[in-house]
Write a protein that binds this DNA or RNA. Sequence first.
RNA 1: GGAGCGUUGGCCGAGUGGCUUAAGGCGCUCGCCUGCUAAGCGAGUUGGGGGUUUGAAGCUCCCUCGGGGGUUCGAAUCCCCCACGCUCCGCCA
Length: 449
Amino acid sequence: MLDLKVIRRDPDAARTALARRGADDAAVLDRVLELDARRRELLPEIEGLRAEQNAANQAIGRAQKAAKDGTGSQGAADAAIAAMREVAARVKTLQQELNDVDDTLDATTKRLANLPHPDAPAQDTVVREVGDATIDGLGLRARAAADGGAPFTPAAEALDHLTIAGPDRVDMERGARLSGSRFAYLRGDLVFVEMALVQWALHKLRGHGHEAVVPPVLVREQALYGTGFLPDTEQQLYALPEDDLYLVGTSEVALASMHAGEILDAATLPRRYAGFSPCFRREAGAAGASDRGIFRVHQFDKVEMFCFVPPEDAEAEHQRLLGIEEEILGELGIPYRVVDIAVDDLGASAARKFDCEAWLPSQQTYRELTSTSNTTEHQARRLGIRIRDDRSDPPRRPEPLATLNGTAIAVGRTIIALLEHGLQDDGSVVMPPCLVPFGAPAVLPPAAA
RNA sequence: GGAGCGUUGGCCGAGUGGCUUAAGGCGCUCGCCUGCUAAGCGAGUUGGGGGUUUGAAGCUCCCUCGGGGGUUCGAAUCCCCCACGCUCCGCCA
């Protein structure tokens, strides 16, 4: 949500910035300005009448008391009450209109997307590529083998993850039988790979100052409006209308909402979290996509980073999150590239977004594995999260802070990349050495014939 | 699922229609006083939105007793809906 005062002062700047997103936000913006103007017409009128009421009500109270004491007449009070009746009716009418204007203004303002960062590019832009686009791109597992880890001889030919894992470990057929397409059972070894990935990531993130969180995944509509997923991505959301709850598509929703309505002491910032939760996405409209296996499913587990920082620190924090994502991919030995996402492809809340795309040998292309967004004050304003700086002089009013999110581990997709990059000629898969202490097998046996 | 009781300022807590425009206390901030500290005295201490202003400060008005609506000249107080919390019963991994 944008700051009304800022829009009011310089509507053209907001208009220009929103236009870069390519949406029809200009009309919405004009509507906001119009409603804001009407609101500021109504307010002084109502407030004047209310001041009149407040004064009269005190006088009535005194007069009635005097009448009771016998020191005054009831007539004076009755006359004042009669006079106020009219004022009360007028206030009621105006108040009704003001309420309508407020409601519409609020709903309309919430439709506006965040202002994009000036540096957000017009087209997706590759920032850098790390590792070779080959089967063991970074050569990390080969190097680890030389250091005494499991020996590793990369397969000569790439295979996709379903072939490598086999139906005993990624069971799409039974998943579909149970729940429909895009659902899978993850079984056997791969469960321990998932647990190791999660444990490893949470430990790493704790070292980076992120507190581990397992959040609720069923949330009220309010949380989705607050994080900017509504109105915007309704067709992506699973809803439970019986209970007025939604399944979250990412723990970002729950993590951002953790401090909703709070005023945080500036001295306690930054606040950094690492959420672990399942994520649910309807993937409506993705029906034609030809992804095999667990690349795009309706339910997957994810470790998500989330940060609350002072607005002036947001950009540095964004780079920090990107740095952690790259560190993770690097240690897992997954070659990747960083893409600066095009301004018209940003979510409603994001001012800027970087994706890390992993090289998938079986597809001979880069695919999105992680993503980090700087949502500036957009979510904080919608969720009512503010910062109080007791150290500032003169003291300032509480102000919105900035929030940022980033994927640490999207489990399913990470497993895909690990399988493809760890594949050896005999069909076995070498796991990154960093996961082994956390319970991953050093080597996954070949899929059963 | 059923029944009951609750939600007041940073915290505790009084308050059943009108000088309560929220008592009192604690905490905190500032000042005074006091060898230091403590105590004492005084003042201040929710958040939001308007007006004035280039902006800020200042001044001023309005709103804010969990949220929303209603009754009334007037609501913390009465009525309705919702959210949340606690207790008991039932059910349950």
